[in-house]
């Protein structure tokens, strides 16, 4: 990918992230994730209706990579089924960790396909996805009545 285009996409989502700001609505499930290095701190909330992601919102303080990744993640996941979400997360994690992945599933998230070159930023790129995984786990726990 052209580095200028990559930078442009990341910067646009960093400076103008979509769906920033949480809402008070019990139909959303919420999770907080923060970076071990104690800097990035993001709250994510997701609403799933009939097995599909209807909405995701976020808030928090984070670096350019974390913030933009959250925004692009939200853009990519809205409208997808829970199974598709899981598949996207799996492939995204593979990409960040330099393993084989399907780029056709990831949309604009492929702007992070060279993040592995800065190992200290991998966590930043993965951070918002941790929240989604937590939310899905909570949801499954509820459905299974655990």
């Amino acid at each position: 990918m052209d580095p200028n285009l990559r930078r442009e996409i990341i910067l646009e989502h960093y400076q103008h992230p979509i769906n920033r700001g949480l809402v008070d609505d019990e139909h959303y499930e919420k999770a907080n994730t923060h970076n071990d290095s104690c800097i990035d701190n993001i709250d994510v909330m997701m609403k799933i209706t009939d097995g599909k992601v209807e909405d995701i919102r976020f808030d928090g303080e984070a670096c350019a990579i974390s913030t933009s990744a959250t925004s692009i993640m939200i853009q990519t996941l809205i409208g997808k089924s829970v199974d598709e979400v899981k598949e996207i997360i799996e492939n995204y994690e593979h990409m960040i960790n330099e393993e084989d992945y399907r780029s056709d599933l990831l949309g604009e998230l492929i702007v992070y396909n060279e993040t592995y070159k800065q190992p200290n930023r991998k966590k930043c790129a993965l951070l918002p996805f941790e929240s989604i995984k937590k939310i899905l786990a909570k949801k499954e726990e509820k459905e299974n009545g655990i």
Binding site: S37, C38, I39, D40, E61, A62, C63, A64, T67, Q118, N120, R121, C124
Partner: peptide
């Protein structure tokens, strides 16, 4: 600029600074 981004920028020039809340949360 978020402090971590600033620290990553300075690191590019081999300048080591700490970003974050420095354990004084």
């Amino acid at each position: 600029v978020f402090s971590q981004d600033a620290a990553v920028y300075l690191n590019h020039y081999h300048i080591c600074v700490r970003a974050g809340n420095h354990c004084a949360k």
